[in-house]
Structures are given as structure tokens and as C-alpha cells.
Amino acid sequence: MATADDFKLIRDIHSTGGRRQVFGSREQKPFEDLVDLGWLKRSSVDSRATHYQITERGTSAAL
């Protein structure tokens, strides 16, 4: 179930172009929650960072 923080984060991601790069596993937790909701997808993972991209469902949630 989505929380107020989830909606705040997806709106922030949407307003800044729909993509986010995250460093460190602790910082990934809120983004992984949005992946579980179907609002974000992991577009790539490298040794230092994970890249996320907003989905259509995420765009709808952000509006």
C-alpha cells in the first residue's frame, strides 16, 4: 500500500524528468518500494549506482 512519502517521492521524480540515479543500498529502499508498487522500474544497475525510470503507472500516481 502506498504511503504519503511514496506519493511525495514519485511527484519529485516526475517533476525532475522521470529518472533518478541512486548510490548506496540504504538510499535505494524508498525507490525499491516504488518498484514494488509498479511506479518505477530499474533501468540499469552498475557497481556504484542504480538507475530508476518512472513508469506510466508512476506518472498517473504523480498527477
Rank of each mutant, 00 (worst) to 15 (best):
R19H: 15
L40H: 00
L34A: 02
I10H: 00
W39V: 00
T59K: 11
H51P: 02
V35P: 00
F31E: 02
A2L: 04
K41M: 14
P30N: 05
Q21I: 15
R57A: 14
E27R: 11
Q28H: 07
V35N: 02
T55R: 01
Q21K: 14
H14C: 08
K41V: 15
L40M: 04
P30E: 06
G17L: 04
E32R: 08
K8E: 11
S44W: 15
D6W: 06
R19M: 12
F31C: 04
T3A: 05
K29D: 05
I13N: 00
T50K: 07
D46I: 06
V35I: 07
R42P: 06
E32P: 01
Q53W: 09
G58L: 00
T50F: 09
D6K: 08
Q21P: 06
D36S: 14
A2V: 06
Q21R: 12
P30V: 07
R48Q: 14
L37V: 03
T3H: 06
P30F: 05
A61E: 04
E27K: 11
S60H: 13
V45G: 09
V45E: 09
G18N: 03
D12M: 08
Q28A: 09
T3I: 04
A2W: 06
L9W: 04
Q53G: 04
L37A: 03
A61Y: 04
E27F: 12
T16P: 01
I54R: 00
R19F: 14
S44R: 14
K29N: 05
S15I: 11
S43K: 10
A4E: 13
S47F: 10
L34N: 01
L37S: 02
P30M: 07
R26M: 15
R26P: 09
V45N: 08
R57H: 09
S25T: 13
G18Q: 02
F31W: 04
G38A: 04
P30W: 05
T55W: 00
F7Q: 04
R57D: 11
F23K: 11
D46H: 08
L37Y: 06
D33Y: 12
A62G: 03
R20L: 08
R11D: 03
G17K: 05
H14Q: 09
E27T: 07
T55F: 00
K8W: 12
A4R: 10
T59L: 13
S47I: 11
D36M: 15
L40P: 01
S15D: 12
A61G: 02
D46N: 11
E32S: 07
D5P: 06
S47P: 12
D46V: 07
R20S: 05
S60K: 14
A2P: 14
F7S: 03
S47G: 15
A4N: 09
E27P: 09
I13Y: 00
A2N: 04
Y52R: 00
R48G: 15
E56C: 07
R42Y: 07
H14T: 03
D6T: 05
G24D: 11
V45A: 10
G24Y: 07
V45Y: 10
V22N: 03
V22L: 04
Y52M: 01
S25H: 13
F23V: 12
G58M: 00
S25M: 10
G58W: 02
T50N: 07
A2D: 03
D5E: 13
R48L: 15
I13W: 01
P30T: 05
F31R: 00
I10G: 00
E27W: 10
E32Q: 10
V35K: 02
T59W: 06
R42A: 09
D12I: 08
G17T: 04
F7Y: 14
G17I: 03
T59Y: 07
I54S: 02
G58T: 00
D5C: 11
K41N: 10
E27S: 09
Q28F: 06
E32D: 11
S43T: 15
G58I: 00
G58F: 01
D6S: 08
D36L: 15
D36C: 09
R42C: 07
Y52Q: 00
A61Q: 05
R57P: 07
R20E: 03
D6P: 05
E32T: 07
R20H: 05
W39P: 00
H51S: 13
L37E: 02
A61W: 04
V22Q: 03
E56W: 10
F23C: 09
I13R: 00
V22K: 03
I54C: 03
Q21E: 14
R57I: 12
R20N: 03
D46R: 03
M1K: 14
R42T: 07
R48S: 14
S25Q: 14
S25P: 12
S60F: 14
M1Q: 13
R26C: 13
R42I: 15
A4S: 10
V22D: 02
E32W: 05
M1E: 12
R57S: 13
H14Y: 15
Q28I: 09
T55Q: 02
R20W: 07
I10L: 05
R20Y: 07
L37D: 01
K8M: 11
D46T: 13
L40C: 03
A4M: 11
I10T: 01
D36Y: 13
S43H: 13
G38V: 02
A49W: 14
E56Y: 08
R20F: 07
P30H: 07
V35G: 02
A4Q: 11
R19Y: 15
K8P: 02
Q53V: 13
F31Q: 01
D33K: 15
H51A: 10
G24W: 06
R20G: 03
A4Y: 10
V22S: 04
Q21H: 10
S15E: 13
V45T: 10
S44V: 13
L34V: 02
T3R: 07
K29E: 08
D5S: 12
S47L: 11
D33E: 08
Y52E: 01
G58K: 00
D46M: 06
S44A: 13
T3K: 08
S15M: 13
K29C: 05
R20M: 08
E56V: 08
P30A: 09
I54D: 01
S15Q: 13
I13L: 05
Y52T: 01
H51V: 15
D6L: 10
A61I: 09
R26Q: 15
D36F: 13
L37R: 07
G24H: 12
T16F: 06
M1F: 13
T3L: 05
S60Y: 13
S44G: 10
Q28M: 09
Q21F: 07
Q21L: 14
G17Y: 04
I10M: 03
T16E: 10
A2F: 06
I54H: 01
G58S: 00
T50M: 07
K8S: 09
F7D: 02
L34I: 02
D12P: 00
M1Y: 13
K29W: 05
F23P: 08
G17V: 02
K8L: 10
G17P: 02
D36V: 14
R19P: 03
Q21D: 10
V35Y: 03
